[in-house]
Design a protein around this nucleic acid. Structure first.
Lengths: 226, 226
DNA sequence: CTTATTTTTTAGATTTGTCTAAAATTTATT
DNA sequence: AATAAATTTTAGACAAATCTAAAAAATAAG
């Protein structure tokens, strides 16, 4: 079965909103896709007819097994294209989203599987997000973007998403390096900046932009066998 | 200015039909795009409004300067993507057309220019067709149609004038591909078929219709300095 | 040079995805 | 529990791209 680009955008959005099978409401989809609630309702009827979601009017909705499978194949395409754009075509990792939004709708299994092979079957995209395989299976993420890292949880810096001299200078100034321990103390919604404790000593404020470039691995006490 | 995928398909088709500024008629576009004459008329009004073509009703039409520029940018994208699919992703050259038809509509100058650089700014695509540059300039081809190629003269296949799957399947069956050496042995006036020797080994009979779609470059002895 | 044929255009409908405004339903608040 | 507020759905309309059938114009044939 194949879908229009518009249908695919709805499917992907609903998938992201329903994380762990929560019910999704009309308005949140409308806001995310920057459209009207009425349009969302229209599309829900269509997707229900195509047996992609569970939906009763006024009661909310969520993707069924088939819908989730479809969403994962779109996400797979999106993330593989982002990897291609950054790793092969030298895009900066914050320039790729708009183009990947277009490329993800190209229909050809042969294309996406060849692309996957050419890229060396990557497990994570340049943003650190996991890439689903042909069956929709996602690798477990051992690292996560700092913006998504839970508060009051001990982790350590496992990657930086940029090698710009400016950024490395900033990191040095804040005494942050690969392997530094990190603990999120507080999040300021006003500017999305984050206050963290580095190496259990220094309190440092990290801007939203910097946080987007830092990846953290949760410190696993059990596995520390030394 | 940007266009829908449908508009782009019309523009490209008209460009190909008007070769050297001939007037184009409604029906030929309808046949090429496998649609109705009425639909073509509708689109012509739209493209005239967008100032891409010269059109007076019942009198035929052709792209103006702006229209040709647009067509060339679409053709550039198509041929670069075909090159990518064959050279990088290991597609067979008769498998690429359908996918390239989709990829050519992706809108991003950055993408297509980075792709061009990554491919090494190729001048010809895997079918031997010239790739327009950013300004729409095409490299000259010193090739000639097989039907006009002199007898008993060594040449090599430099381009094919169609991307139809049927034709490409036929070529594969006859062991003919881009770069194959070719020598016309005999011409049969009854059906205008041609007997040729491929790669100095196999004798193959080529129908008039197939020959019309094959382009040959004379093998240049002078440059063989080994 | 009329008439017949072909080509092209118009008129009116259909489908997809969208909108606004109004009605229906659910949720929140006295 | 009754009413107010928010959310969701329906109704009706619109633009894009398409169709079929009929009308208009150009071309071909007698």
């Amino acid at each position: 079965m194949s879908f229009t680009a518009t249908e695919e955008n709805y499917i992907k959005t609903i998938y992201q909103l329903q994380a762990y099978d929560k019910m999704v409401n009309t308005n949140s989809v409308a806001v995310t896709l920057n459209t009207s609630a009425a349009s969302v309702t229209d599309m829900l009827k269509k997707l229900k007819l195509k047996k992609l979601l569970v939906y009763e009017k006024y009661k909310g909705f969520k993707l069924n097994q088939e819908g989730k499978k479809t969403a994962l194949s779109i996400i797979r395409k999106h993330r593989l294209w982002e990897t291609f754009l950054v790793n092969i075509l030298q895009f900066k990792w914050d320039e790729v989203h708009e183009v990947a939004e277009q490329l993800e709708h190209i229909q050809s299994n042969q294309l996406i599987n060849h692309l996957d092979d050419f890229l060396g079957n990557p497990k994570f995209d340049p943003h650190g997000d996991p890439i689903p395989d042909t069956n929709g299976k996602m690798p477990v993420q051992e690292q996560i973007n700092l913006t998504k890292f839970p508060i009051h949880t001990l982790g350590e810096i496992s990657a930086v998403g940029s090698q710009s001299a400016d950024m490395l200078a900033l990191l040095r100034h804040k005494n942050i390096e690969l392997g530094s321990s990190i603990l999120v103390e507080q999040i300021f919604p006003f500017d999305d900046s984050i206050e963290v404790k580095i190496n259990n000593k220094i309190l440092v404020n990290i801007s939203a932009k910097l946080a987007q470039h830092l990846f953290v691995k949760q410190t696993n006490y059990e596995s520390k066998q030394c």
